[in-house]
Amino acid sequence: MWQLIGLSIIQSIMLSFGQLTLKLALEKMPTFSWTTNFWGDLLTNWWFMLCGILFGGASILWMYILKHFPLNMAYPMASMSYVFALLFAIIFLHETVAWNRWLGVAFIMIGCVFVAK
């Protein structure tokens, strides 16, 4: 059980950092267009490359989790990425979070505790 929790935390952090780096990549991009300049800028954007690495690593870890743990326990644990994404938005993007979102995060964590038991 503790192994599932630990792996789920790592996988959730990777997913959340992937979302953060995707946001940072898109902020540096011009308006979307089907031009070679746009796609060249996207494919040479370091934040976008890092995003792909993080999403890829999280996907490989998720495959390991699914192979070794019951889906009914593993899938709810993936919701921890919501918690980490919220924290990363505050820490790295200096976003403010309303109280009702904190309440939602608390419910998510309570749900993870019930699933883990």
Rank of each mutant, 00 (worst) to 15 (best):
M1E: 09
M1A: 12
Q3L: 13
Q3F: 03
Q3C: 03
L4W: 01
L4T: 04
I5F: 14
I5L: 15
G6H: 01
G6L: 15
L7D: 05
L7G: 10
S8T: 06
S8C: 03
Q11R: 14
S12T: 03
M14G: 06
L15A: 04
S16T: 01
F17Q: 03
Q19K: 10
L22N: 12
K23C: 04
L26V: 02
E27H: 12
M29S: 10
S33K: 12
W34H: 08
W34N: 11
W39V: 14
D41R: 15
T44D: 07
F48T: 04
M49H: 07
L50Q: 02
L50A: 09
L50C: 10
L50M: 12
C51K: 07
C51A: 14
C51P: 01
G52M: 15
I53E: 04
L54H: 08
F55G: 04
F55H: 14
G56M: 10
G56K: 02
G57E: 04
G57F: 14
G57A: 10
A58D: 02
S59G: 14
I60Q: 03
L61G: 03
M63Q: 13
Y64P: 01
K67C: 00
L71Y: 13
L71I: 15
M73A: 08
A74R: 03
P76N: 08
P76I: 06
S79V: 00
S79P: 05
M80C: 13
M80E: 00
S81P: 00
Y82G: 05
Y82V: 10
V83L: 14
V83N: 04
A85W: 07
F88M: 14
F88N: 02
I91Y: 14
F92S: 04
L93Y: 12
L93I: 15
H94F: 05
T96E: 13
T96N: 12
V97I: 15
N100D: 13
R101Y: 10
L103Q: 03
L103G: 05
G104P: 06
A106Q: 00
A106G: 10
F107G: 00
F107H: 06
F107T: 05
M109F: 12
I110N: 02
G111A: 07
V113G: 08
F114D: 02
F114Y: 12
K117G: 08
K117A: 08
K117W: 12
K117P: 00
